[in-house]
């Protein structure tokens, strides 16, 4: 089993760093290139949601990314301290003109691009976004 943990300041500039790092880790773990592209988007969505939630809540706490891979699956946990802002389901999914909100689009991407996506409230506030890509 491989396990890597990253901690980034809650700033949008670091989301690209996480995306590239996780893509590299996933390739090393044997994920094919289509799978790597999909994981990059899912990780980017989870990290963007986390950074924006922290910003909205005025939290300077870091965002933590935990990556593990084993024979069954690749798993990514993204943890923030965005308080109530961290819950994507609590946001408006449509704007006044009927267009999907950014959060709604993010949820669709997350649910489509990985095999499992769960949002788990954290003790002390914030959210853990739990992504799983199963090996075929």
């Amino acid at each position: 089993m491989t396990a890597v943990e990253l901690e980034i300041p809650p700033r949008s500039a670091y989301v690209g760093v996480v995306r590239l790092t996780l893509a590299s880790l996933a390739r090393t773990s044997g994920l094919d290139e289509d799978g790597v592209e999909e994981l990059k988007i899912a990780v980017s969505e989870a990290c963007a949601n986390a950074v924006l939630a922290n910003e909205e809540a005025g939290s300077e706490e870091p965002v933590t990314i935990k990556y593990t891979s084993d024979a069954e699956a690749l798993t990514v946990l993204v943890q923030d301290r965005g308080g109530d802002s961290s819950d994507p389901v609590a946001h408006d999914l449509f704007d006044s003109q009927g267009f999907s909100s950014r959060v709604a689009m993010s949820l669709r991407l997350l649910n489509s691009l990985v095999d499992d996506c769960d949002f788990i409230p954290r003790d002390g506030g914030g959210m853990t976004t739990h992504l799983v890509v199963k090996r075929q």
């Binding site: 990059k40 988007i41 963007a48 003109q97 999907s100 909100s101 950014r102 689009m105 991407l109």
Partner: peptide, 16 residues
């Protein structure tokens, strides 16, 4: 090379 929901949100905003 890469596009996520924040980019989509910008395009939808511009469309409106």
């Amino acid at each position: 090379d890469f596009l996520d929901s924040t980019g989509l949100g910008v395009l939808v905003g511009a469309l409106k």
